[in-house]
Simulated scan of single mutants.
Amino acid sequence: MARKTRLVGTLGALVVAFVGGWEGLRLVAYKDIVGVPTVCYGETLGVKLGDNHTKVECDAMLLSSLQRHEAGMRKCLKAPDAIPEKSYVAFVSLTYNIGVGAFCKSTARKRLDAGDVRGACDAATWYTRAGGRKIPGLVNRRSAEHELCLQGL
Rank of each mutant, 00 (worst) to 15 (best):
residue 1 M to G: 15
residue 5 T to R: 03
residue 5 T to I: 01
residue 7 L to S: 08
residue 8 V to D: 06
residue 8 V to S: 04
residue 9 G to L: 02
residue 9 G to V: 08
residue 12 G to D: 00
residue 13 A to Q: 06
residue 18 F to W: 05
residue 18 F to N: 03
residue 19 V to M: 00
residue 19 V to C: 02
residue 20 G to Y: 05
residue 20 G to W: 08
residue 23 E to R: 00
residue 23 E to P: 03
residue 24 G to H: 08
residue 27 L to C: 04
residue 28 V to G: 01
residue 28 V to I: 09
residue 28 V to S: 13
residue 31 K to L: 15
residue 34 V to I: 07
residue 35 G to P: 14
residue 36 V to S: 04
residue 36 V to R: 06
residue 40 C to P: 14
residue 43 E to G: 12
residue 43 E to A: 13
residue 44 T to F: 13
residue 51 D to G: 11
residue 51 D to P: 06
residue 51 D to K: 03
residue 53 H to F: 09
residue 56 V to L: 07
residue 58 C to L: 15
residue 58 C to E: 11
residue 59 D to V: 14
residue 60 A to L: 08
residue 61 M to W: 11
residue 61 M to H: 14
residue 62 L to N: 13
residue 62 L to H: 14
residue 66 L to Q: 00
residue 69 H to F: 10
residue 71 A to H: 06
residue 73 M to Q: 04
residue 74 R to V: 11
residue 77 L to K: 10
residue 77 L to R: 05
residue 79 A to E: 07
residue 84 P to T: 12
residue 85 E to D: 15
residue 86 K to W: 09
residue 86 K to P: 09
residue 87 S to M: 10
residue 87 S to Y: 05
residue 90 A to D: 13
residue 91 F to W: 09
residue 95 T to M: 04
residue 96 Y to V: 10
residue 98 I to A: 10
residue 99 G to Y: 13
residue 101 G to F: 04
residue 102 A to Y: 06
residue 106 S to T: 07
residue 109 R to L: 12
residue 109 R to G: 03
residue 111 R to E: 10
residue 112 L to W: 10
residue 112 L to S: 07
residue 113 D to G: 11
residue 114 A to P: 08
residue 114 A to L: 08
residue 117 V to L: 06
residue 118 R to M: 15
residue 119 G to T: 01
residue 120 A to C: 04
residue 120 A to S: 04
residue 122 D to S: 14
residue 122 D to R: 14
residue 124 A to I: 15
residue 125 T to I: 09
residue 126 W to T: 15
residue 130 A to T: 03
residue 135 I to F: 04
residue 136 P to H: 00
residue 138 L to C: 15
residue 138 L to R: 12
residue 142 R to M: 06
residue 147 E to S: 14
residue 147 E to G: 13
residue 149 C to G: 08
residue 150 L to S: 07
